[in-house]
Amino acid sequence: MPGASVEAELVKELDRLYEDCSYSSQTYFEAAKSAEFWGRTLVFGPAAAAALASLLVALGLSKQWGAVGAISAAIAATASFLGSDRRATALRDTARRFTTLRHLIRLERTLAISKTSEELQSSVRALLDQYSSIAAANELASNRFFRKAQDRIRAGVLDYESDGR
């Protein structure tokens, strides 16, 4: 029956899209964690160096430490002003959008048995459009974060306890 094979192919497409969203969301979460770490480090490291250099000058050591403190403070202030956490926030928002889409795909996959071929095709197209929209609006994350995501997914980070029942 041709209709059944079309529906089976559409369900396979939902499965592929679900997997794409799983990997994409986890990759962006990994990238967000790294960006947050480095963003904080760019503010805290120079701020700590500025405080230490100022303390050394106050304790009577060389006044050259004052220059180190001033430069370090300028770096920390610049990083803070430029919003070193903006990148992490943007990456996290992208990951959340992929996660939301993943949940919608899971629901559509569950509801697929009660839909006609045309309804299912329409749903798959709409979900693909949403996926493309999210992907097109964001820069690609590094392969390093994809590999981390891949390891976490293989370790079961996205598995639900209720699926094992």
Results as ranks from 00 to 15, higher is better:
residue 43 V to C: 10
residue 43 V to N: 06
residue 43 V to Y: 07
residue 44 F to N: 15
residue 44 F to T: 15
residue 45 G to I: 05
residue 46 P to K: 09
residue 47 A to E: 15
residue 47 A to W: 04
residue 47 A to L: 13
residue 47 A to G: 11
residue 49 A to K: 12
residue 49 A to D: 08
residue 50 A to R: 12
residue 50 A to T: 10
residue 51 A to T: 13
residue 52 L to N: 07
residue 52 L to R: 08
residue 52 L to K: 07
residue 53 A to Q: 04
residue 56 L to V: 01
residue 57 V to Y: 04
residue 57 V to M: 04
residue 58 A to E: 14
residue 58 A to H: 13
residue 65 W to N: 10
residue 65 W to S: 05
residue 65 W to T: 06
residue 65 W to Y: 15
residue 66 G to E: 14
residue 69 G to V: 04
residue 69 G to E: 01
residue 69 G to P: 04
residue 69 G to I: 01
residue 69 G to Q: 04
residue 70 A to H: 07
residue 71 I to P: 03
residue 74 A to Q: 11
residue 74 A to H: 10
residue 74 A to N: 09
residue 74 A to P: 02
residue 75 I to T: 07
residue 75 I to M: 06
residue 75 I to P: 01
residue 76 A to I: 01
residue 77 A to I: 04
residue 77 A to R: 06
residue 79 A to M: 11
residue 79 A to I: 02
residue 80 S to G: 12
residue 81 F to K: 09
residue 81 F to C: 05
residue 82 L to R: 05
residue 82 L to V: 03
residue 84 S to N: 10
residue 86 R to K: 15
residue 87 R to H: 09
residue 88 A to R: 03
residue 88 A to W: 08
residue 90 A to R: 13
residue 91 L to T: 00
residue 91 L to M: 09
residue 92 R to K: 15
residue 92 R to A: 15
residue 93 D to Q: 11
residue 93 D to R: 11
residue 93 D to V: 08
residue 94 T to D: 03
residue 95 A to K: 12
residue 95 A to D: 09
residue 96 R to S: 08
residue 96 R to A: 09
residue 96 R to F: 01
residue 97 R to S: 02
residue 99 T to L: 07
residue 99 T to C: 00
residue 99 T to I: 00
residue 101 L to N: 12
residue 101 L to C: 09
residue 102 R to P: 07
residue 102 R to T: 04
residue 103 H to R: 12
residue 103 H to P: 01
residue 103 H to T: 09
residue 103 H to I: 04
residue 104 L to H: 08
residue 105 I to K: 03
residue 108 E to T: 13
residue 108 E to F: 09
residue 108 E to P: 00
residue 108 E to R: 03
residue 109 R to Y: 08
residue 109 R to N: 06
residue 109 R to H: 12
residue 109 R to V: 11
residue 110 T to N: 02
residue 110 T to C: 01
residue 110 T to P: 00
residue 110 T to A: 08
residue 111 L to K: 13
residue 111 L to T: 10
residue 112 A to S: 15
residue 113 I to C: 02
residue 113 I to V: 12
residue 113 I to S: 14
residue 115 K to S: 08
residue 115 K to N: 06
residue 115 K to F: 08
residue 116 T to F: 05
residue 117 S to R: 13
residue 118 E to P: 03
residue 119 E to M: 10
residue 119 E to Q: 15
residue 119 E to R: 12
residue 119 E to G: 10
residue 120 L to A: 08
residue 124 V to H: 05
residue 124 V to N: 05
residue 125 R to K: 12
residue 125 R to N: 10
residue 125 R to S: 13
residue 126 A to P: 01
residue 127 L to F: 02
residue 127 L to N: 01
residue 129 D to R: 05
residue 129 D to Y: 06
residue 129 D to F: 03
residue 129 D to H: 07
residue 130 Q to G: 00
residue 130 Q to Y: 06
residue 132 S to A: 13
residue 132 S to G: 14
residue 133 S to L: 03
residue 134 I to W: 06
residue 136 A to C: 00
residue 136 A to E: 09
residue 137 A to G: 13
residue 137 A to W: 05
